[in-house]
Amino acid sequence: MAGVAAIESAPEHRMSVAYDDVLRWIRKFAAEVEANKESLTQLDAAIGDGDHGINMQRGMSAVVAKLDAQAGDQDVGALLKTVGMTLVSTVGGAGGPLYGTLFLQMGTAASGKGELSPDDWAGALEAGIAGVENRGKAEPGDKTMIDALVPGRDALKAALGGGATFADALRQSAAAAEQGMRDTVPLVARKGRASYLGERSAGHQDPGATSSHLLLEAAAETWGESE
């Protein structure tokens, strides 16, 4: 029975993410936003109002301060909702409601769960993205964060459906989000302040898609390693 032998000798693959893993992912994203604050702001200065990095950094540092101060009750859903409400009240602009909604809807989907299975994560991501689409009314190709999130979600679901390990699925999700982010460069913006530039918005990478790629990349890096 070669198959059984292969399974027995394979390294332990992560089958779920626990509350503390979710915390590490949030902190990793905060660190990535901090590290990319200047470049996010420069991308936004080219086609928006030049504050995306500053706003996201202010929001994520408020999130980290909040998480440091409160003892977790091990409810992943409640944790994600706390992140969402903190972003809503500290980021402002369009990024606050959009990232706030993403986390709030993920939190609702994960409500009461102490850990997330791969399918739970896919379901939470799907719910969060649906919230962003509903809030911002953006569709793929409008040159927004949706252009990184939707390919990331679709790649995750396809990989899990095809029997990939969670770690592989997360890596494919992040890679698809990265490609989606790069694909925003030639697009003409149809939403947000960049849309007022019309054709002049083409040739620039979308700052929202860039920060959304950081979010999925942080998940792959935090949860993608073998246990």
Partner: peptide
């Protein structure tokens, strides 16, 4: 009608 104002008021 500014994207940020509209979304924040909707929330």
């Amino acid at each position: 009608n500014y994207t940020g104002d509209v979304m924040n008021f909707e929330m």
